[in-house]
Design a protein around this nucleic acid. Sequence first.
RNA 1: CGGGGCGUGGCUCAGUCCGGCUAGAGCACUCGGUUCGGGUCCGAGAGGUCGGCGGUUCAAAUCCGCCCGCCCCGACCA
Length: 590
Amino acid sequence: MRMSQLFSQTLREAPAEAEVISHRLLLRAGFIRQLAAGIFTSMPLARRSLNKIENIIRDEMNAIGGQEMTMPVVHPADIWKETQRWYQIGSEMGRFKDKNNRDMVLAMTHEEVVADLVRKEVRSYRHLPRLIYHIQTKWRDDPRPRAGLIRVREFTMKDSYTLDADWEGLDFQYRNHYQAYFNIFNRCNLPVIAVKSDVGMMGGKMAHEYMYLTPIGEDTLLLCDKCGYSANRQIALLKKEAPPEEKMLPVEKIATPDCKTIIDLANLLDVPESKTAKAVFMMATIPEGMETVEKFVFAVVRGDMEVNETKLANAVKAKELRPATEEEILAVGAEPGYASPVGLKGALVVVDDLIPQSPNLVAGANEEGYHLRNVNYGRDYTADIVTDLVSAQEGNICVRCGGKYREVRGVEVGNIFKLGTRYSDSMGCTYLDKDGQEKPVIMGSYGIGSGRCLACVAEEHNDELGLKWPISVAPFQVHLVVLPGKNDQKAVQTADQMFVNLSQAGIEVLYDDREESPGVKFNDADLIGLPLRITVSDRMVKQKSVEFKLRNSDEKETIAEGDAITKVKSEITRLEAEIKNKVVEVPFKD
RNA sequence: CGGGGCGUGGCUCAGUCCGGCUAGAGCACUCGGUUCGGGUCCGAGAGGUCGGCGGUUCAAAUCCGCCCGCCCCGACCA
């Protein structure tokens, strides 16, 4: 490709709205342009890199038996109503009506379409197992798109779906994906870890997320360096140490004016925060058949811990949770700042499982300015649900080995889900097994965002001059720069010829044939960040030589003109081998 | 959805507080010349409904109201 013909330009300055490095560099280097919040165009450079990423994905999916297909972006709402997700998912779903006033959905994912296909195509155990996938546009009207390509509303995802006759089959395909995903990210030279995760709106049994660790990430992860346990904070378990046993003391009402926070309370009474009970009020939207009901949820955790909203939502099977308003709190007989589980009416009480083991806590009195001492679960109040409700944090004890957790941030670049029969049941996907028995098809679903992957690679590989693409993801392999000098076409002729020769040798070349000064050309080359650079200058062609440079190194090497192709080829081979070495077996961790 | 910020030519920004002549600068773009290994230099040009609508005023980029868009923090999120 001649740069004089390329449909995009580099920018000397990044647009003001770009903050994170990948966003700034992808804009400046001319890879992407924004159309609206969370909606981007992939320019030719980005498209080429995305093609490389997607081809790596294809390669790895095909290697585990995947069959590529394409499913529609626009769906009739009917199938989403069948699985209830039409009702369960809120404003994040893109909905519109067609000309006949029929409800339509913009695909957020494709379980419904797959399930519809399965019930029509799969009749017999002979049709199983299968692995199908596509690379297709998704629309999720995210409330807050941000950070360039990291979090967008329209995006492209590879999503694959496994169809199995039994749970062992699902297990096998799940593990195949587990490894294939590591292969994919390693081949993109993107370091990731797999963590256990919440099943969220997908429903299902087990899920892992593939996380690229970076401070700009939006997910908080807990890692145990001792045993390797890793999980998204949303579901991370932790070891809670039960306090020493105490005799239950009689409840005692005490005046605690202006004492609305746990810290105030602990200070005033001179007790540790772990001797208090913290109350959190939420309104939960809970699906009941086709309808939803709003319930007031009163959650209780120990004062030294935080409520985990994902765990709470899962405990009460809520589709949505929001903080309750003051009026709603008063309506159930609680007092904001002085709330207590003792003597509540009409609330769903959910208590962390450490609370019943923690005797003689200080809790609110449901009366402004008063708390109760020596409140004990079982004697003074009971809960509708007792379960793990708290968020794991830096320094907490590992649930597996007793080590200490470390907290890091990450971007989710992929995920794998064991769906089980959630969709098969609601959409009637059954097959006949060998005994003629009708059984549900067991499904799995697996996603990778290709644009997000590109952004993460850009986020990982850059320096103060610009991008530094791994050879496997670079839009071109070689940046060919010509510096013509004055009144002499010799360099241009040599470079033109080299462009032809390299291209004919199957090498992908971006040829900067523009009439620009050397400084501009070098800076653009560094900004765009192709792994190899060849400079053909007036000065050097006189000695029949050219300059070779790696983006990743400051060294410049003078080589004979005639050796250029050999040199480029061997360097590409070397860089590709480096990447290949990163592809290794990863032990499965559940 | 809550909090904050911003919106002036393709990009970065000044001007807005305190209303007043043809609305400015740098970069990018076009033309001419110059330079030629790290964002050359000189000259000439083209390009703007000052986000939109309404109001106040002799006069609005500037003041007031409503709306829209974009960014950041939070809530949310396969």
